[in-house]
Design a protein around this nucleic acid. Structure first.
Lengths: 240, 240
DNA sequence: ATATAATTTGCGGGTTCCCGCAAGACATGG
DNA sequence: CCATGTCTTGCGGGAACCCGCAAATTATAT
């Protein structure tokens, strides 16, 4: 068995390699990559079936790397090892995992044992291992209670990118009014209207901008999500 | 000499303590804190004059911690050891450093030697040591060339928080038109208008929202800056 | 002190946003 | 089949945004 470790922090990288070697004595080779780009290349050249990677990396973000790896070999088993359980990350991962693939999401704050157990479960038993905290987010985002639906999340990203209603309408093939309709529901979900005990008559807030602000503060959005969305947008803009 | 180390990642924390001990043999005690809150408390109780800390921490962000530490003892020497040189961080630090205080800003990607040299320069020689990359940002943000002035940055933060023009006007003691004036200049600086070779007639972008988006992508703003601004805002809202 | 530049403010208007109302489209289930 | 619920679309209008123009104020420099 060979395992590819993709992580840009040197300390974390060596810790992770050590953990892999300890948890998987049957693992003969542990190869390290210091960012997503190198990771993608190594995965392609050496046909790794087992990968463990960070999500937040400078050169190329973990979600991007995972997407291309999975696109080329959908049966690759990937364990995400991240500092954060931002909903933006969790959504990003859920969006790209191929049907039936085995993957895992473990927080860096987890204990040594949890990490090693996860490594064995995923790479040996082909089982999905999702950190409890992360699991909670997934559930909540499915069950409507205070979680955004896909269409609401989509339009949230669109206004965060700075698109006008009209631009969103043409991009998503909707009428102008539908876009505004979805925005209304987004504003309700995000509780933009009366920010927890404020005055009633004066709207201090620009709803559109406030929605983005709240989403960022609640970590429904983060830098990496914006970055990906921006890339998709410029792609779409190019094809008019 | 006693040194206080504030860093929430265990691996980085022990690495940092080790570096301090190696660079400063005259240092008798190295005390560790695992987040900003604990760090503040220890600094207050033990009257540390030498602190090295991370900026991005969960419980309480490094900038907040540094502000309260400096407020209580302005002669404290603080070395910031951060993963990122986001302009948002650099601005945040510049804003709180007391006049004449010795401080440093070193990136985690710097070599062992650079870190140790910085530790000695600041703690022994009382000299400021700013990473070259960070220094570059500071210069650029002072020299107007493509950098935002303080008032432009201020209004950027205000629209990122989701305030209306009117709300900004009352908060900053300006007329409505002045607010919009500043916004115009902000939009010019951020190049919101014609995004590098797009169509001429159709404005796909909502300028206000796009400005925030661009600022986030360029790291003029980040989560921690937003968080601080939000705290200040709710304080101001309370006092009407 | 006077010229020059940069900010601030008011006015007016075109555009976009925000949304109530109401009618159609679509699915799900009895 | 109809009932019910969710989603979409059009219309219309009030509010907010964006900004050109021009006068007044303030800063900066020579």
């Amino acid at each position: 068995m060979k395992v590819l470790v993709i992580e840009d922090d040197p300390l974390h990288r060596s810790y992770l390699s050590e953990a892999v070697r300890a948890a998987l004595p049957e693992c003969l080779h542990v190869i390290e990559a210091e960012n997503g780009l190198v990771g993608e290349r190594l995965a392609r050249e050496n046909k790794f079936a087992h990968v463990v990677m960070d999500l937040q990396m400078n050169a190329r973000n973990g979600i991007e790397a995972a997407r291309t790896i999975w696109k080329e070999r959908p049966d690759t088993r990937i364990l995400f090892w991240s500092n954060y359980a931002d909903e933006a990350y969790v959504r990003g991962v859920s969006r790209i995992v191929p049907p039936g693939a085995a993957y895992g999401y473990v927080l860096k704050s987890a204990s040594d044992d949890r990490l090693k157990l996860a490594l064995r479960s995923i790479f040996i038993e082909s089982q999905c291992v999702i950190d409890r905290e992360v699991r909670g987010l997934q559930q909540r985002s499915l069950g409507n209670s205070n979680g955004l639906t896909d269409s609401e999340y989509e339009i949230l990203v669109d206004i965060a990118l700075g698109l006008t209603d009209r631009a969103i309408a043409t991009r998503r093939n909707l009428s102008l009014r539908s876009v505004q309709n979805r925005l209304q529901r987004l504003y309700e979900k995000l509780e933009v209207y009366y920010p927890a005990g404020a005055a009633e008559e004066d709207n201090r807030f620009n709803l559109r901008a406030r929605a983005v602000s709240i989403a960022l503060l609640r970590k429904l959005l983060n830098y990496s999500a914006l970055e990906r969305a921006e890339a998709e947008l410029s792609e779409w803009l190019a094809s008019h």
